[in-house]
Write a protein that binds this DNA or RNA. Sequence first.
DNA 1: GGTTCTAGAACC
DNA 2: GGTTCTAGAACC
Lengths: 199, 199
Amino acid sequence: MQNQSLQNIIRKNEENNGFIIVNQKEFLEKILFQYYKSKTFASFRRSLNSYGFQVYQLQNGQKLFINKNIISINQNIHKRNLNPPFQNYYQLIESEHQILLLQLTQIKKNQQLMEQNIKRVLSLQEEITRKMKLTMIQYIQGLLDGFIKGKKAEQFVLQFCFSIKNKQFSNIFETIRKIYEGQFQKSLIITRYQLLSII
Amino acid sequence: MQNQSLQNIIRKNEENNGFIIVNQKEFLEKILFQYYKSKTFASFRRSLNSYGFQVYQLQNGQKLFINKNIISINQNIHKRNLNPPFQNYYQLIESEHQILLLQLTQIKKNQQLMEQNIKRVLSLQEEITRKMKLTMIQYIQGLLDGFIKGKKAEQFVLQFCFSIKNKQFSNIFETIRKIYEGQFQKSLIITRYQLLSII
DNA sequence: GGTTCTAGAACC
DNA sequence: GGTTCTAGAACC
C-alpha cells in the first residue's frame, strides 16, 4: 500500500481507517493474486470482514473498505472476536428456559403442598375450637349439675370464655357476662344451648 | 439451457435436478450478462441459493448446482420459505422469558402472602395453646382449692386434657392418668408445675 | 423477487 | 487464520 505505483489500483482513504479499491480487476490480478492465496474477491472480502472491515460501494463503482474500530490502517488489526455460534447461544437460552420452567413447576408444587398444609392447620384449628366448645359445654353442664360449685367456679367460667377470644363466641360471652348480673342458672342453660347450636 | 451451442458453458447434470457450469468465465460473460441483470457470480449464487440450490465444486474446478428438493430442473421451482428473521425469534424467546419472569414474580408474591398467613395461623395456635394451658392450670387449681369436686370433675379433667391432643402435653396426660391410680392431690400439684414450666 | 453486505459454520 | 458455502437482513 506504500508503493506509489499501486495508487491507481488501491489507496488509503482520507480518514486513514480504510482503503479504496480503485480498479477491482487490476487489484484481483496484480495484488490479490500475488500477496494472498485467495483467487476470489468474495474470499478476500470475507477475510477483511472478519477483521472488522465494512464495504461501501462508491458512486463511481469503486469499493471502499472501512474499519470503524481502528484509528490508523497501519496499526495492527486483530481479528474480531466471533460471536458464540448461534446454535450454542440458542441452546444456552433454551436450557436457561428449561431451568426456569423446571423451577416454576417445582415452586408451583411447593405452593400446592403449602396450601394443603395450611388447610390441614386450619382444619386442626377448627377441631381444636370445636373441642374447646365441647369442653365449655361440659363445664357449664358441671355447673348446672352442681358438681362444680362456688363463686370461684363462676369466675373461672368467665375467665375461660374470655381466654378463648373467638369472635364466634362473642354473643356467648355476652350471655356469660350476665352471670354476674344475678341470672346465673338461667344464663348457663342459654349459653349451653347457644354453644350446642354453633358446633 | 436447451440451446445446444451453450453445452460447453452450462449443461444439466445426469440426475436432472441441477446443472454444471462448465466455463464460469464464459458463463458470466455470455449468459449471466444477457439473461440476468446481475453482474456478479455471488448475486447469481445467492439467488439460486434462495431457490434451494446447493453449490458443489467439482474436481476439475467446474461448479455443480443441485436442488435436492426437485425432481426435474425443468419443473417450476419455488423460492424457499425463509426462516423467520432471527430477531423475531429472539424477541419470541425474550417475551416467553418475560412471561416466565412475571409468573415467577407472581408466585413469589403468593408465597409471601402464604407465609404471612402461616405465621398468623401459627401465632393464633400458640395463643390458643397458651390459653388452654392457662385454663387447665386454673381448672387444676380449682380442684386443688376444692371448688371443683367429685368423680365427674376428675373425669372431665381427663377428657379435657385428651381432647386437646397435643404432643407437648403427653407427659402431662401421663401424670393425669395417675389421678385414677390414687395419688390424686400429689399428681395435680405436679401437673400444675409442669404446665407452668412449659408456658 | 433480485442485489448486496454480513456473519455463521465447517473445513483445511 | 484463510476459504467456501450458506442464509439473514436490508434495500430496491
